[in-house]
Design a protein around this nucleic acid. Sequence first.
DNA 1: AGGTACTGTGGGAGCGCTCCCACAAGTGAT
DNA 2: ATCACTTGTGGGAGCGCTCCCACAGTACCT
Lengths: 352, 352
Amino acid sequence: MATGHGARSRSGGRPTLEEVAARAGVGRGTVSRVINGSPRVSDATRAAVEAAVAELGYVPNTAARALAANRTDAIALVVPEPETRFFAEPYFSDMLKGVGAELSDTEMQLLLIFAGSDRERRRLAQYLAAHRVDGVLLVSVHADDPLPDLLAQLEIPAVISGPRSAGETLTSVDSDNYGGGRSAVEHLLSRDRRRIAHITGRLDVYGAQRRVEGYRDALRDAGHEVDESLIEPGDFTEEGGRRAMTRLLARCPDLDAVFAGSDVMAAGARQVLREEGRRIPDDVALIGYDDSAIARHMDPPLTSVRQPIEEMGRRMIDLLLEEIADRRPAVSRGLERRQVVLATELVERTSS
Amino acid sequence: MATGHGARSRSGGRPTLEEVAARAGVGRGTVSRVINGSPRVSDATRAAVEAAVAELGYVPNTAARALAANRTDAIALVVPEPETRFFAEPYFSDMLKGVGAELSDTEMQLLLIFAGSDRERRRLAQYLAAHRVDGVLLVSVHADDPLPDLLAQLEIPAVISGPRSAGETLTSVDSDNYGGGRSAVEHLLSRDRRRIAHITGRLDVYGAQRRVEGYRDALRDAGHEVDESLIEPGDFTEEGGRRAMTRLLARCPDLDAVFAGSDVMAAGARQVLREEGRRIPDDVALIGYDDSAIARHMDPPLTSVRQPIEEMGRRMIDLLLEEIADRRPAVSRGLERRQVVLATELVERTSS
DNA sequence: AGGTACTGTGGGAGCGCTCCCACAAGTGAT
DNA sequence: ATCACTTGTGGGAGCGCTCCCACAGTACCT
């Protein structure tokens, strides 16, 4: 009656810190300490508080905590692509798996945000401006994307999955695209293929560039010269793979191997090869990239370069959590630029 | 200097409502009204506030709002399956697309939550208990799942995508599984198939049961009797489709058509049929369910029953937002049970 | 004995909003 | 001129936490 509007009416009758404190016969601060795992609490007190928490079924109010502590305990996985591609490319699901696994023994909440359209991007900008997440995981970012700069400007911790360029300023995790490209070509050379074509990924993606470089260097180092007409740009889509393969075949009918910058493109290439009556691998050897489910289920099964995507996801989280933790007490330690590169592995199947 | 700890230091220097109010020369309450679109503000005042908001780049603090208003402006899409299946089945991506579209002109944030493992489910329970979302979208729930009851107990608005049974208490959106099953069988009958097998989905999923009923009734209504040995339970996976097809073929070598409860299972069935030398559709007609990308890309292209999944997603959001809005002022209006059922459509291709 | 340190604890102040009461000013009926 | 509304506005109180200061108690020095 004394209280203005009935005290706990708003929160749906959920117990508050204060009530737990009363129950346990301690102060509010002490309960907070127990909840947050502070070491400065005696064992007896801790036990009493934990009992009270259990009895009351106390669950901290996230909003109140976020307001008081100025943090959200949430991080976003931002995918600057339309949903469609996200589901089409196994890359993302593997990454999500790693991320989820690494996050699972944390209090952190993962948000999945698509920013494919302009509209979505504006929403995202607003979202970040509101500091609704403690950190951001950036996946599949193109060279000219302004997102990383926005993040830097807002001082939001972020980790990027493929650096935008050799001079990436954000903390990044990547697989060894250069080495992956090399190994694909070296493998084909060892199988006595000499006219090796390459369908590249989108060349505004740094990783795709690096694969091309690996392709070139592997040929050169083996004493062959690079025939530029054997290199055809693709765009990571099946349709793009089809188009590229058609052009390659028209230009260089004598090719005897194709290294596609992704399994999906390899699937497109395979269709065209089939239609043109080229047998795989007898007439043309085919290699993909990603070692996705597509590769295993292709007919014939596709040799492919495996990236440890799941592990990349895990490492990204590790790095991000560190950055978030480090930022909390504004120590402003001159973080050395951190770039992690993980090894790739060639998975041989019957297409090569 | 007067203020204890430096006023705005915590929030990272972001402008607050109070500052916007000062700038616009109005009170805090008025700014709040403008921000929240209340009609009780004069045009002149509104303009002044909006100008101040723009100049300062004001963005509301979500945590503060959530705390004060006891809402989160977030809803969760809960998938009681491991991530793997989520990505494997196009069902989910289509649904997500509809949901995202319908949500895009809203302030609501969508959270994607997987609850496949026990561990994840406990996390989810905790999450819901903390009322971290205003509402929940439930997808692909099994008959014995305790989740809906938890939701009801916590009084969290929820909409379920496939009712758990005929007596579903939650608001639900579904496609006409019964009609879909019927139409598949009717189509096969019209093509003069007489020994029509059915690979069912998981029978603890109500929709799968309904498809079986549709299958049965279509046969009966056409004057045929149902041969139970032609019905083989599957589990919605490719491997399950393979197993079921193998058993069917062993039991009923004379079958001339197969209606699979999902495209993925149809893909599994196709493999077995091929291996056994049965031509599609010459020897055996094949029909799937879902009309997913798999159906279009199968060889031969698969006839399939299309569910308007994207629209289901949209409708779910509509209903959920209504429930959330209705709940806000605790009017407790006796909500009539709401069940929406959307029509399916048979998409004919060359497999039948 | 007095100092100095640490450990454990209580509780005030404040995070940035929303809600709602109070009240000024305007409108029209009596 | 009075009353009864309506419209627009300001600002107090409070949401449930965290942060931090103050302080009691204990331990170990000099």
